[in-house]
């Protein structure tokens, strides 16, 4: 009697097992909701975004542009219209809303260049940086203060007052020189603009007469 029931039950054993596995597999579908999270962990992101390491000052940037740093890649996040009016030399226009277009990811997700984001101030640039940082893109920077500070410090540097320390004057001189590089002209520039080139003095050539030695010897 028992044996027969057992046999009947056992004839379904594979079906039962299969069903059990399918149910378990269904449970696995629900799990990865958390694993599918895009990018780095929120805790990590928070600690990244509150650190000011991403900022680069206008002076540093000017220095790198003037020295023609080949690893520098400037990205202008403003719209096309403002980009055409004025932008930093050799910058690439990439409006914020196009940040994740297909073409842009080649610029952002790489490790060959130091990418500097900038906008009018650093509001949009920060947003772009935060989103890219979540995707774990490396070598990204933000121009602190953006174009507005660029204008205030590099293009039109404030003249230091007389009671300011020497450093302020030195900084002003550097910034002024930088602004000249970026196309600003000053009324008192005339002399500095045309450096006198020393005339090349003809080279004196002193010829040394070689004494010919009479062949010695012989018999």
């Amino acid at each position: 009697m028992i044996n027969r029931k057992l046999v009947k039950f056992l004839s379904f054993r594979y079906v039962i097992l299969a069903l059990l596995f399918i149910i378990l597999a269904g449970g696995l579908v629900l799990l990865p909701k958390f694993e599918k999270q895009e990018g780095i962990k929120p805790e990590q992101l928070l600690s990244n975004i509150i650190s000011p390491e991403r900022y680069i000052t206008t002076d540093e940037l000017a220095d790198r542009i003037i020295n023609q740093d080949p690893s520098l890649l400037l990205i202008d996040l403003r719209d096309e219209e403002t980009f055409k009016k004025y932008s930093l030399p050799n910058a690439i226009n990439m409006p914020l809303k196009n940040l994740f277009d297909e073409d842009s990811s080649a610029f952002l997700n790489q490790d060959a260049y130091d990418v500097v984001f900038f906008s009018n101030d650093n509001f949009d640039a920060d947003q772009a940086w935060i989103l890219c940082n979540r995707l774990d893109y490396k070598n990204l920077y933000v121009l602190k203060g953006g174009i507005n500070r660029w204008f205030k410090t590099i293009i039109n540097p404030p003249h230091p007052k007389e009671n300011m320390p020497l450093e302020a004057f030195k900084l002003y001189a550097t910034r002024k020189a930088a602004s000249m590089y970026f196309g600003v002209a000053y009324p008192d520039q005339v002399k500095t603009n045309v450096p006198k080139r020393p005339r090349p003095t003809p080279k004196k050539v002193i010829t040394v007469k070689k004494k010919k030695k009479a062949p010695e010897g012989g018999c």
Binding site: R78, K85, Y86, N120, D121, F123, D124, F151, F182, V184
Partner: peptide, 17 residues
């Protein structure tokens, strides 16, 4: 204001020249 351009830079440069 946020993201407001404070000065017209290219105009400033032309003026200075």
């Amino acid at each position: 204001d946020i993201e407001k351009l404070e000065a017209d830079i290219s105009a400033f440069i032309n003026e200075s020249v």
